[in-house]
């Protein structure tokens, strides 16, 4: 069920958000998949907070073509 335009963000459930994110990628989450995906997305959000908590200089580039 699409979320109506103008719906306050705080009233949108995590399930609705994750289904919308999935739709952008051409994925349709089933009811069986949803709990596990929500759990893993929450875990990734906690890890993202840990990484984002470290201030990095603007000159710090992504480690593409990484050489140890």
């Amino acid at each position: 069920m699409p979320v109506p335009h103008g719906t306050p963000a705080e009233t949108i459930s995590p399930a609705e958000i994750i289904r919308a994110q999935a739709a952008v990628l051409g994925l349709e989450l089933t009811d069986a998949q949803l709990p596990g995906v929500l759990d893993n997305a929450a875990l990734l959000a906690r890890y993202a907070a840990l990484v984002n908590a470290v201030p990095l200089p603007d000159t710090c580039e992504p480690a593409f073509e990484y050489t140890p």
């Binding site: 994110q21 999935a22 990628l25 994925l27 596990g36 990734l44």
Partner: peptide
């Protein structure tokens, strides 16, 4: 599956 789905997003 659920880890990959969350990771893709």
């Amino acid at each position: 599956r659920d880890r990959f789905l969350a990771g893709a997003m």
